[in-house]
Amino acid sequence: MELTSPKTISYLRKKYHFAPDKGLGQNFLCDPEVLDKIVCASQADEASGVLEIGPGIGVLTAALAKTAKKVAAVEIDQRLKDVLAETLQGYDNISIIYDNILKLDLPKLMSQQFSDCKTVSIAANLPYYITTPILTGLLEQRGLAVKNIVVMVQKEVGVRLCAGPGSKNYSALSVLTQYHSVPEMVCVVPPGCFIPPPKVDSAVIRLSMRDEPAVVPDNETLFFKTVRASFGQRRKTLLNALCNSGAFGLGKDALKDIVHAQQLSETIRAEQLTLAQFSSLSDAIGRAAKIKMD
Rank of each mutant, 00 (worst) to 15 (best):
V153S: 05
F248P: 01
I97E: 05
I101K: 00
P55L: 12
Q141Y: 00
Q112Y: 06
A289R: 13
L3P: 05
K103A: 05
S174H: 02
P217C: 10
I101Q: 00
G251W: 13
S230W: 02
V74C: 06
K37D: 12
L273C: 11
L173K: 01
P133W: 08
L281P: 07
V74N: 04
S208W: 02
E156G: 09
L238N: 08
E212N: 09
P127W: 05
Q89V: 08
E184V: 07
L176W: 13
G143I: 12
L104N: 03
A85C: 00
L64V: 10
V150F: 03
L238D: 08
T4F: 07
C243W: 00
P127E: 05
A63W: 06
K37G: 04
A124Y: 07
K290H: 13
A73P: 06
I258C: 14
L275R: 09
I96N: 05
G25T: 00
A41L: 10
S42P: 00
P20R: 02
K14T: 14
T136P: 02
K290W: 12
G49W: 01
I38D: 08
A289D: 02
K236M: 11
L126D: 04
A289L: 05
I53A: 05
V146S: 01
Q233R: 07
M185K: 15
D211I: 07
Q89I: 04
I122R: 01
S202H: 06
K256C: 08
V216I: 15
V259F: 08
Q141P: 01
K15L: 15
I258T: 13
D36T: 15
A261M: 05
C117K: 07
R206G: 09
E212Y: 06
G143P: 08
P107R: 11
A68R: 01
C162A: 14
L275D: 14
T226C: 15
S280C: 12
E75W: 13
I53K: 01
V216A: 14
G192F: 06
A72R: 09
A145F: 11
K256Q: 15
A288W: 08
F223S: 08
D77F: 00
D92H: 11
R235N: 13
P196N: 08
V175T: 04
T8K: 13
E156K: 12
V39I: 15
L238T: 04
L144A: 10
T226L: 12
S282D: 05
V34L: 09
K199N: 11
R206F: 09
L51D: 00
V188N: 15
D294L: 14
E52C: 06
